[in-house]
């Protein structure tokens, strides 16, 4: 088994009196694509935001790359943050900068790269995420939703991270765009040896690219495993999710596995 790149133990998060996670344990292994699913309001995005440090956990321990996030100094955290990339739902591009300038932001801020090299690497990332060269000089408002996500992905890859977090990468894309985006993620993951932590609702993505799936329910991770395990599991929510009418449409090749 590959080493764990993210290790969460006994995590508890809450907003006011409302407890989102309680005793949540999860491990993400190096080089895998882990899909996080769960009903609305089960705290999938909150979990992502907690790991990258946008929320403070109330209790528990989160280790990323073997370092306990609650015990590191700000400088160590900064170094750590350069080793992961985050893609927010609608790309979260800076609207006053062009796509290429967006990708250059982390290179300029953290690595102080000279402008010519930045331009070259930005062009490379734009090509890697499948955007046409004209897209580089466009502003986010001039792009379609799918292109904004690709641009956001390019920015999250700007510093060649080992780990990327994706928040609903295919939400709001048409089925063809979503399938292409899935393939892009898989391809980048294989080429660059990335570890991918992906919050998603898209059953097609789960089937097509996720190595393992973690199901959030009852304030914790109910079960983690490959698709075949999900289809066999007896929990009512899982049965409904993975065997509902939409799920059946999404799993033609696996017919008969779950029954």
């Amino acid at each position: 088994m590959a080493e764990a790149i993210i290790k969460i133990q006994g995590l508890k998060t809450q907003f006011g009196d409302q407890i989102i996670h309680q005793d949540l344990d999860l491990e993400v292994r190096r080089g895998e694509i882990l899909g996080i699913v769960g009903g609305s309001g089960t705290g999938k995005s909150v979990l992502l935001r907690t790991i990258v440090g946008l929320n403070r956990p109330a209790a528990g321990r989160i280790e990323v790359f073997g370092e306990d996030l609650s015990k590191i100094t700000p400088a160590e955290r900064l170094a750590l943050e350069q080793r992961w990339g985050v893609l927010f739902q609608d790309g979260a591009l800076f609207s006053s900068l062009t796509v290429a300038q967006n990708i250059e932001v982390p290179m300029k801020e953290h690595l102080g790269m000279p402008p010519r090299l930045r331009d070259e690497i930005a062009a490379l990332k734009i090509a890697m995420v499948g955007l046409p060269p004209e897209a580089g000089s466009k502003y986010p408002s001039e792009l379609s939703g799918g292109m904004r996500k690709r641009a956001g992905l390019a920015r999250s890859l700007a510093l060649d991270p080992d780990l990327i977090f994706l928040d609903e990468p295919t939400a709001g894309l048409d089925p063809i765009g979503a399938a292409n985006f899935d393939q892009l993620i898989r391809q980048l993951q294989e080429n660059l040896g990335l570890t991918v932590f992906m919050v998603t609702h898209d059953l097609d993505s789960l089937h097509a690219i996720c190595d393992r799936i973690a199901v959030l329910a009852d304030k914790r991770v109910l079960v983690v495993g490959p698709m075949a395990d999900m289809l066999r599991h007896e929990h009512p929510w899982l049965r409904e999710y993975f065997h509902g009418p939409r799920a059946r449409a999404a799993q033609p090749k696996l017919e008969g596995v779950g029954g």
Partner: peptide, 22 residues
């Protein structure tokens, strides 16, 4: 082999682009 693969990825994506509108 890993380095060769990485160099191939880069070669396949050699596509200059504009950074700012003219």
């Amino acid at each position: 082999p890993a380095h060769a693969a990485m160099l191939e990825v880069v070669a396949a994506n050699d596509q200059p682009c504009e950074i700012e509108p003219p």
